[in-house]
Design a binder for these strands. Sequence first.
DNA 1: AAACTTATACTGAACGGACGGTATATGTGT
DNA 2: ACACATATACCGTCCGTTCAGTATAAGTTT
Lengths: 204, 204
Amino acid sequence: MATPPTRPALRARYERRRQEVVDAAAKVFALRGYHATSIEDLIEATGLTRGGLYHYMPGKRDLLLAVVDELMDPLLRRAEEILALPQAPEAHLRELTQAWLEHVASHRWHMIVFSQERRTLEQEPGWSDVRDARAHFEQLLADVLERGRRDGSFSMRDPQLGLLMLLGSVNYTPQWYDPSGRLGPEEIATRYCDMLLDGIRSAR
Amino acid sequence: MATPPTRPALRARYERRRQEVVDAAAKVFALRGYHATSIEDLIEATGLTRGGLYHYMPGKRDLLLAVVDELMDPLLRRAEEILALPQAPEAHLRELTQAWLEHVASHRWHMIVFSQERRTLEQEPGWSDVRDARAHFEQLLADVLERGRRDGSFSMRDPQLGLLMLLGSVNYTPQWYDPSGRLGPEEIATRYCDMLLDGIRSAR
DNA sequence: AAACTTATACTGAACGGACGGTATATGTGT
DNA sequence: ACACATATACCGTCCGTTCAGTATAAGTTT
């Protein structure tokens, strides 16, 4: 019943398998949707049996929280690393977007689950952390845009809408991104930033 | 059991109430998610009783299909109206985006349901129509961008990614759009196009 | 216009099945 | 021997659906 082993020797294997279960669940949740996924589906995806599965999770809901929990943390830490270095807003924006898209690409299923279930999970215990982390990251982006506006390098009519456009573009990416496709995350990031900064109109 | 009346006198009222049921369902599906929505929730949302609800729908699944079905048709017709008039690619792009965002704003719940359930509904009977209509609309947008590239008015590094950025921005809009908010659909459309065309970088 | 017949709108209880979760048994490695 | 991993069978509950029945409005006959 989801009891982590006390023996240090077995701890590592347990955590590794648990992570495999979470990742497998992320993919199934993303493809079928959380509520439409039955325990039977999770069994099929993990290769375990009913009892074995419950050895690694307290319940289906906790598995969902595990999928979205700690999803934003690595990205937030990376973002703060980037912002710690003093740079022009444009450079900050480009590096943030690149780190963000690399994260999206490597956690594609988790991101889709987040988008799909964010509404059904509002006001759920443990959910507020995820939402706060998300809001925090968006605030960091907003700050960069605002800083660019203040120092004169950006001049959007509506700062808020600029952020929303960027959020929309990146958050939509998991829907079509193909790891074996033509474009990698860093190329996508570069071109998003190119378009957001200079637009697609030909220079006249 | 969801049998439309044959008598012409009652047909109108039936269709009106059925539409109310579908719209109410759209909102509940959007907020809670389709699978997480119980018949009890639908009863509460519609004001009907269990049996009464089944008078207007053959089943829960059909109700979901009704929500997304015929969602794209009005937009597609409007798009073809716009494209029938000979105009410059930029004008076409701006008008398409505006019509699109007006549609998104007035069918916000339906759109959220579509985004949330598109994966769970793949390879479902009746679903291919919706997907085809969606693909058709995206193709119309892609054609406009391509026409702009050919005649020299647009010059994006990657035509496909320009489309995906626009799709992301607009498809993300229902997630934050507030009908009583500061910005209406036409203003949002204008500023999206401003940013996509000219970027947010200050003129130097 | 009154009486009658049928189509339609709605009710509420009950059913059948699926689903998440648990208890218990049996290996398996330390 | 003990902790841990996995297997199997089972339970209670919830949920989508059905159905027999009632009330009312629409159409028809007299």
